[in-house]
Amino acid sequence: MHMIESDPVRKSVTVRASPQKAFEVFVNGMGDWWIKEHSLTESGQKTVMVEARAGGRWYEVGNAGEERDWGRVIACDPPHRILFAWQLNADFDFDPTFHTEVEVMFEAIGEEETTVTLVHRDLGNYGAKAKDLRGVLDSEKGWGGLLASYAAKAACQSGKRASI
């Protein structure tokens, strides 16, 4: 079985806050800013919880109280860095045998200013099995379905059909 290589996704944003504050909001306040539509719960997203320690859970809580695991915390070094295992497979099901990494780094670049850099890597794991890749593209609740809903949302916002 061959591996499919893929570059990591890398994003950064600079916020007017200390690294301590940025880390606090990102990790302990994730439920306050995570986009509610990006949800796995049947009853809709109430909040997102991060247990900020190595081995801690990363999960979503629905309005009805149900919990859906997303992954776990591999390493936590406040206020500099947190490393997550993102364990939602291509069908958006939690799979303890599936593993991609999301690393978030907080770097002070001035007084009350912090650059937050997020790297989502090991994306090749999605393509390691053709079955999973098919799930990526094929399934209503997989990436294909989310892509379509994203496109619809983007189209609403821009007032015209988004091309993806």
Partner: peptide, 29 residues
């Protein structure tokens, strides 16, 4: 299998995290 076929997923994740970080930035502000 064409590894560029993963481009679709990568592109989705790219937008996904961009949106999430924008939401995070708003929360901090």
């Amino acid at each position: 299998i064409d590894p560029a076929g993963l481009g679709q997923l990568r592109q989705w994740l790219d937008r996904f995290w961009r949106e999430q970080l924008a939401a995070f930035e708003s929360a901090v502000e």
